[in-house]
Amino acid sequence: PTPPYLKWAESLHSLLDDQEGIQLFRGFLRQEGCGDQLDFWFACSGFRKSSQEKRPKLAKAIYRKYIQDSNGIVSRQIKPATKSFIRDCVVRLHLDPAMFQQAQTEIQSTMEENTYPLFLKSDSYLEYT
């Protein structure tokens, strides 16, 4: 069978589907000051699955931590229109499970184009393999 670390190089999704891969990628992102990218990505997935009772508090928490501060790494990588959309949803309590979908896609593209290829060339990954 293919060893997990070779699968990680196939696609970002293969990497994010493996606990050990996530751990290594997260360590790399933290070194680069981009750890929030990954946490935000998982928070968006978790939000979709969250219960209706938790959604209002959770939407606010995600908004405050990653989007409100325009200097934050996640906030800088999301389009202004997407940020206003989320802000509107939070303010009006229009809490659709998919309200972070677009932002998640944008962060995912950033990882795919930028931090994920860097990770595959990084010492952390090469040492692991």
Partner: peptide, 20 residues
């Protein structure tokens, strides 16, 4: 604030793949 952080952490963990 603490409980908000806990909620976020719980949400992030819930989306991670389970151990295989």
């Amino acid at each position: 604030i603490d409980s908000e952080d806990d909620l976020l952490q719980e949400c992030i963990s819930s989306a991670m793949p389970k151990k295989k």
